[in-house]
Design a protein around this nucleic acid. Sequence first.
DNA 1: GAGTAATGTTGGTGCCACCAACGAATGAGC
DNA 2: GCTCATTCGTTGGTGGCACCAACATTACTC
Lengths: 146, 146
Amino acid sequence: MDEMPARMAAKPSWLITQLAVHTRRLVFDAFAAAGSRGHHYRALAVLHEFGAVSQAELGRRSRMDRSDVVAAVNELVEQGLVDRSPDPDHGRRNKVTVTRAGVRHLRRMDGVVDQVQDDLLQPLSAEERQTLTRLLGRVLARHEDL
Amino acid sequence: MDEMPARMAAKPSWLITQLAVHTRRLVFDAFAAAGSRGHHYRALAVLHEFGAVSQAELGRRSRMDRSDVVAAVNELVEQGLVDRSPDPDHGRRNKVTVTRAGVRHLRRMDGVVDQVQDDLLQPLSAEERQTLTRLLGRVLARHEDL
DNA sequence: GAGTAATGTTGGTGCCACCAACGAATGAGC
DNA sequence: GCTCATTCGTTGGTGGCACCAACATTACTC
């Protein structure tokens, strides 16, 4: 691989965005091979951990725009992995729930995701992986609450 | 900010791609405020550090697709920041060079980029920043040569 | 000299984040 | 109660970034 400018190679912003490109590809390929996609996994994860929620809350918890949630839920409904029904207590709101098949699919994808972590962090020791995760978590947290 | 699923919050792949979103926004906004863009900075950095190169090499060194290089160089030429001329020794190849104004612009953008690093890593100490940079660099290097 | 590779260019694709607007419905302040 | 602001689902669209296919032209390899 050709050498890149030194001023770029040393910048955290470059390292993060560039590594994210590779990461996205790993994740995308792994999901694609299993017939799924990132948005789907995120939605299923939210529904599994927080129970039935509205699409709006689903979007907030999975960091997705409302409009993207619509598409994701549409696709998941079509695959029988979630159910969408109007919330009886709440006129406008939808209640989205994972199906049995959805939970099974989520479990499979959990395995896929774990595999990706291993591919991604291959050059690092267990301790280094932990350090990296901790530091990234702190930086991200800072940027999430403003 | 709403809580996200625990299985996601702990995954390096999630932390990296999600932090990259915030990073891209910081970089994009900072560049936009200075009337520039990421591709432009990358191209100028390559030209400044490696001298006059072909568009193909420019793309390889800045991790851009050849087609994206065409657009970036077009725009930079229009702003007078680079010159594009046919390589005399090489029929098909173009020789791209930074202009005086291009170097000045690059220097300004260097300052902008440095500021972004500070915003980005605010919660970390100097030592932690160094650790993070080193770990990210190692992981990225691994994924760049296969 | 013939076949392969590289170059610049055009014109796409797709993911992901995001925005604007809208009608419908809920919630808060008074 | 009634008004006003907010929330919700949905449609349709933007833009950055990475990437791919094809093509004509030129260089490189054997």
